[in-house]
Design a protein around this nucleic acid. Structure first.
Lengths: 343, 343
DNA sequence: TGTTCTACGTGCATCGTTCTACAGATTAGC
DNA sequence: GCTAATCTGTAGAACGATGCACGTAGAACA
């Protein structure tokens, strides 16, 4: 008689709370939503009943008429440790709110990404954060027409229907070149990502090119694009380092690739930083390990995540004007580029 | 006049599909659920209408009476690259099904983990996969009483109300000791995780102890437990390596910690594998990088993920009998333990 | 031909919330 | 003391699916 319905009836509903508190269902709903027209005494009464009964609103039911208080986050993959930093920021921002972030993995495929976004919409999520998305503007606007949207790692500074959060990738890449030049590297190649649509890649390449031009090293400009798979990176790196015009430094578009390059170069008997300098991007925790000691660009992933969550909840609350947050990147020098001017 | 309801009316409902196909709403619902009592012709008619209108069932609404076709996955954090392997397996298993997996991050806190599980229940998820959970059996059974549950990385072979998926951690740890002994290491310490409740940690420690005893090295047994934070690992490792009884090998409970230990040891001027051998666990991609070249135990994360997803969908379909899947671990030897018997 | 099955479809109550429209109570204004 | 304005709280129709209970048509059997 105590444990009546075993696997189903256990859930406390808004109706029971109302009954317990001696008020209407609508009143309880109002308390739940901080809606207008609730006296302090009623508020207190209802909250007491909710606590006593252990009531938890059912998001699925809320979603039918109102919000689900769920945010969808789409990550390209789980391998790149940079995303961990972003997540910490997002979760920090949501700590004291009703919102929860749930993550889907797109496997870096535009198709899968769209499928995940659609399934997040099916689940009535209140807003979407796309991280490292390679969709074009059309798709972003299509999503934004249906749900509040914020992107991280996608440049589109004139977008009106959604917000963007970024570091200044062009500036970051220029910092890399400047640092390498100051450390006496000249024949600097860039190992970039094969992606016709990633705007952050485009910005980093542009920054690299500008940096090289400004340093008078235009003739050494060399951008090699590969996919993210270990095999492709290996082939491209070997080709680069075995070629006749061997670069004396390689700027990699993300840390994780830079670590692979260090691995390959070491295997080939090259000494870092003497024979070849390596720089990454994102300043993830692995850079700091002594065996890597990888110079990198810090773009404060945690801050990016925090801002994205803030902007998204603002959008949900009704802001229509777009905001575009940009953080200034910072170079962190480590042993992988430690070759002093010899003059 | 064309774009009537801008941000809301766009969604096609089951009612419209029914109308378009000239059948009842219930019939469409049956097609959606592959339920009994639908002729081929009706099925075809309805599917055609769904395609034509671009209908997508609203998970929130389905959740009110039936399933949401959403699985909740709880990860301790995003830093450990091992979880990426698991996710690949999970997603592969769900590829051709209606199910989607959404991820929540517990930050390795039992409290947060429970909060996430609760919020997943609020969202009417059909089942839960807990990865590396440190809850006790009571909590697991509480969850399992409400939703189908599968754990990965938690040993509880007699559990009846939920399934478990694991590698044989005890055997894995014994493999490590055997391998180290065969490579002429003797004073082998274990760097373990400070967690009173993790069963996989307990198993790995037990395996280490058994391995040491069997090798006649009982007097060298030394288990040091720390949290996962960089600082704590650093302190513990330095203390270990600076102490009077410096071990000549360290077995780390996960790769990620082993990479840190390599970093610290290198910083201290020790040579790996000469002065000290290092072994990790999980055989994540970073082990393979030349600068790490870390020996490790492979426990096939992808397979674990695949099995967990399979078991969970089976549970959802009604299986009540518990299943406990265990994979046999395999040692992958690399340079970090490459010291031959000198006799 | 009448009876019994079986296979196929349908009507409608239902899930747990939100939110509009409205009613009653209290206060304010004159 | 009457009307208007404000402030609280309520009733009940949604939201978009599911799934029970039931009706109907045609086949099978005697």
């Amino acid at each position: 008689m105590a444990t009546d319905g075993e696997k189903k009836n256990s859930r406390v509903t808004i109706r029971e709370v109302a009954e317990d508190a001696g008020v209407s269902v609508a009143a309880v709903s109002k308390v739940l939503r901080d809606a207008y027209g609730v006296s302090e005494s009623l508020q207190a009464k209802v909250r007491a009943s909710m606590d006593r009964l252990g009531y938890r609103p059912l998001a699925a039911a809320r979603g039918m008429r109102g919000q689900t208080y769920t945010l969808g986050l789409v990550l390209p993959d789980l391998r790149n440790p940079f995303f961990a930093d972003i997540m910490v920021g997002v979760n920090n921002a949501l700590e004291r709110t009703q919102y929860r972030a749930l993550i889907g993995i797109s496997e870096s495929s535009v198709q899968t990404e769209m499928a995940i976004v659609e399934s997040m919409m099916d689940r009535q999520m209140d807003g979407i954060i796309l991280i490292g998305s390679t969709e074009d503007r059309g798709n972003h606007e299509k999503i934004a027409a249906l749900k509040p949207l914020v992107t991280i790692g996608h440049h589109d500074p004139t977008a009106q229907s959604f917000d963007t959060v970024n570091n200044n990738d062009q500036q970051g890449a220029m910092l890399v070149v400047k640092h390498l030049v100051a450390s006496d590297y000249q024949n600097i190649a860039m190992l970039s990502l094969l992606s016709g649509t990633s705007t952050i890649i485009a910005e980093r390449e542009l920054g690299y090119r500008r940096g090289m031009m400004e340093a008078g090293l235009g003739k050494h400009i060399n951008v090699v694009q590969t996919s993210q798979t270990l095999r492709d990176v290996q082939v491209a790196t070997r080709r680069l380092l075995e070629g006749p015009q061997r670069p004396d430094a390689i700027f990699c578009w993300t840390d994780f690739i830079a670590l692979e390059v260090i691995s390959i170069a070491t295997d080939m008997g090259l000494v870092i930083p003497g024979d070849v300098g390596i720089v990454g991007y994102d300043n993830t925790m692995y850079c700091d390990f002594a065996q890597n000691s990888l110079s990198s660009i810090d773009q404060s992933g945690e801050l990016l995540g925090l801002q994205a969550a803030r902007l998204l909840t603002e959008r949900i609350k009704g802001r229509a004007q777009a905001e575009h947050f940009v953080v200034t990147p910072r170079l962190v020098a480590r042993r992988s580029t430690e070759r002093r001017k010899q003059s």
